[in-house]
Design a protein around this nucleic acid. Structure first.
Lengths: 140, 140, 140, 140
DNA sequence: GTGGTCTAGACCACC
DNA sequence: GTGGTCTAGACCACG
């Protein structure tokens, strides 16, 4: 469990939720893995058990974990988890591109800069754009 | 001025700020245009003058407007405005792509889907990716 | 607001939620009516503001109210509310009838007894059974 | 013995109780049949013997089984069992109808829909209501 | 004034 | 041991 950023404006319980969700997306936490107990995690994060409890309740509500009373919280094997996340990302990015379009920022410039940054992080964005670009379909 | 969405979780003053910023980006509000007075806008939005005041203060802090005592608030002709916005968008999108990469979603799929959606909205995303993909500028 | 039954095994916050939901179903609370403030209701019920807060959060999550920060909670004008409730009731009752069937209790007996009880409460169940039973069997 | 649903919010011991009760209602378990031993059932359900013990204690308290020291637990031949269950069901259904009435849902609609569903499951709900309506058996 | 979050500490049911 | 609920009291952002 990563540490909490007390500088962050987001509430602590929300940060906990986010942390666990990414851990699941990344496969660090897998189906039926046991979550740390409310109390122990509270100790580890030096926060209040109620706060952790709230985070777990939220995770359960969103379908990421399930609770066995008296035993603990466990990761739910949610097959559609990935698809949801993918759609979420697609929506978010599309929305941003649309916004750029609205205020007249040329998409070319955006994409160019983004690609530069991604590749400087070692992310092979080119393959993607490549496929996009390919067969010369769009050479204006 | 568009209406405020009271069901939105974001604070009202922030919605006002956002509204004005997009109006400036879109060119609806231009340099040295006069902003509506605090009181009149508060009336129009049927909200508290304090709230409008807070929004204007925030806009001034961010360098989007300037105040002339006794006369009112005016739009600042900020040449770097666009660049800031562009950078903001680039950062946001890059961040999202990075996240996708982190959890193992193939960027290809994302870009493909996004492209589909943009073009279905009449936004010519293809030209952008094209230029990217072509001249091989960023391949290494 | 009805009183809380501290004998009831259900948690207090859940009782509060239920109370408000029925008040909405009955039309006592209508769209955009303001809910009592968290603190005042807590006082009235002589319970803790946190408990009321939890109830309100749940009501918001379920789409029955919306929150305007700094102003209060308000009833959401949910048109599909009634339909949801109706379906819920139908499901519950059907489930019970199915259970009876499963363990071999003749449905006739059940319906007979239920009808007796409903009419003794002044509920005109007969009209309903009428349609069911068709052609004018019951002109009493 | 059916399996336990650990994702179910109800406590495990309660699920065990329910399971046995329906088995008795359905006649799968009959008077003086021996119940599985606490330990073996605990193994079978891979749960804690304490939990099974608690379930058996509850079943005994409710008059469904009796204990012979050193021999085991046995099903009680309780003639009033069925009547209790019937009353329970009648109460539950009546309560739901009353609730519907309270919030102004026309009982006709409810009954109509329920009838549709029951018959689509092959349960002859119609005959029941029919008998009700016809020979006037329950009219007074 | 409003709601939202958090802490500290308690009690309960369940396993 | 586990999670779930509740209290008392605090602090913050928002209007």
């Amino acid at each position: 469990m990563n540490l909490i950023d007390y500088q962050d404006s987001r509430p602590i319980y929300e940060q906990i939720v986010e942390n666990f969700k990414t851990q699941m997306y990344k496969g660090i936490l897998q189906a039926d893995d046991q979550m740390p107990s409310v109390r122990s995690l509270a100790m580890e994060l030096s926060t209040n058990p109620n706060t952790v409890q709230k985070a777990y309740a939220e995770l359960e509500r969103q379908g990421f974990i399930y609770t066995v009373k008296g035993r603990g919280n466990f990761v739910k094997g949610n097959t559609s988890m990935m698809d949801n996340k993918k759609n979420e990302l697609i929506n978010a990015i599309t929305e941003l591109f649309k916004e750029a379009q609205d205020i007249g920022i040329p998409i070319d410039e955006l994409v160019g800069e983004i690609k530069k940054r991604l590749s400087s992080m070692g992310i092979v964005a080119c393959t993607a754009s490549d496929k996009l670009g390919k067969e010369g379909g769009y050479h204006d």
